[in-house]
């Protein structure tokens, strides 16, 4: 995912994170974002949102990843959180069955609140706590043989994801297993038609028109506009 080669069309995609507390939402994002920066940046508390580019063969997707900032804890997310989100990552902890129930609740909420074309990925995190060889191949991963903490089977979650038309992955934010794949799959699943412009959070097919309407509060101001000289 290195930034190289000729410039490709670039589009911004707003991606929202959802899921029960402590399933590893932020860890997944930090894994994804830090891997690309190649700097040993410390996780930042209080990030409004993080951005990360994802290079596809024909285009570059720039994710604007919005964290819930804890507003999901008491079901207090605002409509502005879902607004214009083109992708959502709904995370559960595959060692905790209740977190999948919660995830299903979030999927329903997204179907109710979010834009109709939103791409949703269901992600079972903490694969490193299971005996699956795939998830346990990183250093420091796993809890040892015979101590499989998995409580949600791949089949159960996968069949639910298929029913609802969601992308499905099992990941380990700890080892990095499958993390980049999730974001790449989302990037690939976003329809080209909703990627017309590369500007602003929630850019959509109507964005070109929005752009001509939006008032920029930080742009160059009319130098003649001091104290009403425009009049």
């Amino acid at each position: 995912m290195a930034d190289s080669g000729a410039p490709k069309p670039s589009s911004s995609v707003k991606l929202v994170l959802l899921g029960e507390a402590a399933v590893g939402k932020s860890s997944l994002v930090l894994r994804f974002v830090n891997n690309d920066f190649q700097e040993n940046k410390e996780p930042t508390i209080g990030a409004a949102f993080l951005t990360q580019k994802c290079n596809l063969p024909t285009r570059t997707i720039k994710f604007e990843i919005w964290d819930t900032a804890g507003q999901e804890r008491f079901a207090s997310l605002a409509p502005m959180y879902y607004r214009n989100a083109q992708a959502a990552l709904v995370v559960y902890d595959l060692t905790k069955p209740t977190s999948l129930i919660k995830a299903k609740h979030w999927v329903a909420e997204l179907q109710r609140q979010a834009s109709p074309g939103i791409v949703i990925a269901l992600v079972g995190n903490k694969l490193d706590l299971t005996n699956d060889s795939a998830g346990g191949d990183g250093e420091g991963a796993g809890v040892g043989d015979g101590e499989d903490a998995r409580k949600v089977t791949t089949e159960e979650a996968k069949s639910y994801a298929e029913e609802e038309g969601l992308l499905f992955f099992e990941t380990s934010a700890k080892t990095g297993y499958n993390v980049t794949e999730v974001f790449t799959a989302i990037a690939n699943a976003i329809p080209e038609t909703s990627l017309k412009t590369a500007r602003g959070p929630g850019a959509s097919s109507a964005a070109a028109r929005t752009e001509e309407q939006r008032v920029n509060l930080n742009g160059p101001r009319d130098p003649n506009a001091k104290e009403g000289c425009a009049c």
Binding site: G46, A48, D67, A69, Q71, R73, F74, A75
Partner: peptide, 14 residues
Amino acid sequence: CRAGAVGGAVYMLG
């Protein structure tokens, strides 16, 4: 309010 939450405030509607 989102800025408040990002800064660590706890939100409870209802």
